[in-house]
């Protein structure tokens, strides 16, 4: 400890200049890990069996690009349907009506409890189970009727299979999000004369989104890769099937697998960027990394932000309310 190097104007007159604790293990560990990483990279690049020339050739193949498009369509369309269904299921689970609660519970129980692969095969076989679909009065006369094959094509079977399964998982995420919002928020909104629907849309859901978005981003990334299972329907245009078909035809399965992996990685990376911005949007007003934070005004401003950023205190020490 010495103060001889303290520059003039330092607000801390007795600033500590101590030698750090020697940690030779850190350096050794870093070197070992770097060497291992270099070996792995070398093994990837120099191994001729990967056929990087073929990877580059087929990476932009029209069939592969079409596969990417179908994968994206399946991912986003099924997630969109699943989100709408999940919000409905979550609200049913919280309903005062016992029939609604029970139906929602059974739905989630069934679709979470059976493998997605099995469900997709079933959707593929729906035309065998129900050759004709009809619209009419329940248990009464029919008004319209269709051949199931004409209505539920392989694409729709795949889409419905993915969406209905995902909705069960998302419903639990949404429910957790809704439950996480302080009941005082609903009360305050009620006291202002807001109606239930408005309270849900304007007060509860926006706050629940902070809890809902991160795991939903995770589910979207997971869905991207689950789409490769729709071959069970069978739907054969998406990325995994398209690439493996080329691979089997050319007797070059490995480079085509690498192509699929690279495309999945690229899309996942883009999704992660999108998720980051969504989380920032719904995190506003909740302390970390919001746009208007860091102005350095008010007790929650700069000082507290700096203390929080240091990560050495777990609670907001300037807040006078017990959380």
């Amino acid at each position: 400890m010495s103060s001889n190097k303290t520059p003039a104007g330092d607000p801390v007159p007795n600033r500590i200049h101590a030698r750090p604790v020697p940690r030779p293990g850190r350096l050794v560990a870093a070197v070992v890990v770097l060497v291992l990483a270099a070996m792995a990279a070398n093994a990837l690049i120099t191994n001729e069996n990967f056929r990087w020339d073929v990877v580059w050739l087929y990476l932009r193949d029209i069939v592969v690009i079409r596969g990417v498009m179908w994968t994206l369509v399946l991912t986003f369309a099924s997630m969109a349907i699943a989100v709408v269904l999940a919000v409905t299921l979550a609200m049913m689970r919280r309903s005062d009506n016992p029939v609604m609660r029970w139906v929602s519970w059974v739905y989630i129980w069934f679709f979470r409890g059976t493998p997605i692969y099995t469900q997709l095969i079933f959707w593929g076989l729906i035309a065998v189970l129900y050759p004709r679909l009809s619209l009419g009065i329940p248990f009464g006369p029919e008004l319209f009727s269709f051949r199931t094959d004409d209505v539920i094509t392989a694409f729709w079977a795949a889409l419905l299979g993915l969406a209905l399964n995902e909705a069960a998982y998302l419903a639990e995420i949404v429910r957790a999000g809704l439950t996480s919002v302080d009941p005082g928020q609903t009360e305050a909104a009620k006291a202002l004369g807001m109606k239930d629907g408005k309270i849900m849309r304007r007060v509860v859901l926006p706050q629940a989104m902070r809890v809902i978005v991160p795991p939903t981003g995770n589910e979207t990334i997971s869905m991207l890769k689950t789409t490769s299972l729709v071959v069970a329907v069978p739907f054969t245009f998406e990325l995994t099937y398209a690439t493996s078909a080329i691979g089997n035809r050319n007797f070059l399965p490995i480079p085509l697998l690498v192509i699929a992996a690279l495309w999945y990685l690229l899309i996942t990376s883009i999704l992660m960027v999108g998720q980051h911005y969504l989380e920032r949007h719904y995190g506003r007003g909740f302390g970390t990394a919001t746009g208007r934070r860091g102005r350095g005004t008010g007790p929650g401003g700069g000082k507290q932000a700096a203390i929080a950023a240091a990560g050495t205190v777990r609670v907001d020490i300037t807040k006078e309310v017990t959380p």
Partner: peptide, 26 residues
């Protein structure tokens, strides 16, 4: 009906012990 109750409430202001401001709004 809940809508009518909401209308009655809108004429009465309430302030809570724990404030209950909407945290996602300025």
């Amino acid at each position: 009906h809940p809508k009518a109750v909401a209308k009655q409430r809108s004429r009465i202001g309430m302030v809570f012990q724990r404030f209950h401001l909407f945290p996602h709004m300025t």
